[in-house]
Design a protein around this nucleic acid. Structure first.
Lengths: 224, 224
DNA sequence: CTGTTATGTATCAATTTGTAACGGCGCGGA
DNA sequence: TCCGCGCCGTTACAAATTGATACATAACAG
């Protein structure tokens, strides 16, 4: 059974209260194992995650897969480039999203506030993707995993302290494909972190941070 | 001496003719070795490259560097997220850019057409960064380099045929930091491509494609 | 309960990196 | 002008990291 992320609403503060209220009626519920869109689907909507976790992936013809991002509450997913989606968006946990017509981003379509929120989300997306470049290109396996855990904690709004718990709704393979590693390396590295007492596993999908400072150190510095 | 990219105007077609004419008066000339902005600078403008090549980098506190992107004619650089730039933008070749106030993207500020062009550029940027994720996370050194050459050729509008020449205005180190490799690996891989007769070097910064089909094969498939 | 999938572990192989050395080229100063 | 210096690029070899393979174990669904 999937574990629900704590503090699912933490990142929604960037959206106005009236927006959140209006969205509630338009919200769409998604089941784990389902999907929001697939590569090649017509990109008619942009989605905002209200709760739950989604996964955005791209697959090469030879089968190699790259997880582009995980969609957490507050994230906006499905920015269009051309007529079709170029990624798959799958549902990892029970989730709820709001769908906005792409015209709301492209022309405003009468709702200036929402237009602005979607635009800001797109710019934030660019910035966070730049962070991820550093992760993929210039960090070792252990740095990647440590960074990943830190980013996840930050993303769900959980302060990094001793005994902080972090849910991992995604599989080891998802983590590997997100970090540009193999599942074996993920396993190995998690074991290293466990043996060195930096983390413990409550369950396979629930990590306990034992030494937050060590984890941050292992994560390697951010941009200077 | 830097080599000028062929077909510098190739990608400008996505911007309207009237725009290009208006921009000419606002254009700013840049010298190699100079820069457009640095991390921490206030992000007041968004830039569009008219000619020349720029380099967008992010540096970690431990000195590790990631080249986020190379800015070629038609590219838009400096999308803001928050008040400050989070990257350095340096000038690789004599270049010309136009600066737009960030309000033009954020509110339109009266110019709907430009607003739309900048927004489209942002969405295109997200998509191309997703491509690059695949490159960084799931391709081998030789695949990365082959892909890089193909993308460069495509970017400047040069069709990939026998004896096609591609200018490399950036250093080996820049290429390495872009692809998540080391300069030595870049050198070694270029040598491999040369020895196998796929490419030749007109000069250090000028590649000749001898076997375009082999290069495309080596580049590995795109997303399926 | 049982077949199936996911995860962990160990071993070995492959790729990539690190280190060092060398040559070439441009630049500035003597 | 010539020389020396430093940066860039290349190469060879050793070392480290990561990947591949195989298998055991655990979790899960029917």
């Amino acid at each position: 059974m999937y574990v629900t992320m704590p503090n699912d609403q933490s990142s929604l503060s960037q959206f106005s209260a009236t927006r959140r209220k209006a969205d509630r009626k338009l919200a769409r519920d998604l089941k784990p194992g389902g999907y929001l869109f697939r590569e090649g689907d017509e990109a008619r909507y942009i989605f905002r995650v209200l709760s739950g976790v989604l996964r955005l992936t791209r697959v090469m013809e030879n089968g190699r897969r790259q997880v582009i991002a995980f969609g957490y509450p507050g994230d906006v997913i499905g920015f269009p480039n051309g007529a079709e989606h170029h990624t798959d968006c799958d549902v990892l946990t029970p989730a709820r999203v709001v769908a906005y017509r792409r015209e709301l981003l492209e022309s405003g379509a009468g709702d200036a506030e929402l237009h602005d929120e979607l635009l800001t989300a797109a710019l934030r997306e660019i910035s966070s993707m730049q962070d991820h470049f550093m992760m993929l290109g210039r960090k070792s396996a252990s740095e990647k995993l440590a960074s990943f855990l830190c980013v996840l904690a930050d993303r769900v709004g959980t302060p990094l302290g001793p005994y902080t718990q972090i849910a991992l709704p995604m599989s080891r393979c998802d983590i590997a494909d997100f970090l540009g590693l193999t599942t074996e390396t993920i396993s190995r590295t998690i074991t290293q972190l466990r043996r060195s007492g930096v983390i413990a596993l409550e369950s396979v999908h629930q990590v306990i941070i034992l030494k937050p400072d060590d984890l941050l150190t292992l994560a390697g510095g951010e941009e200077d």
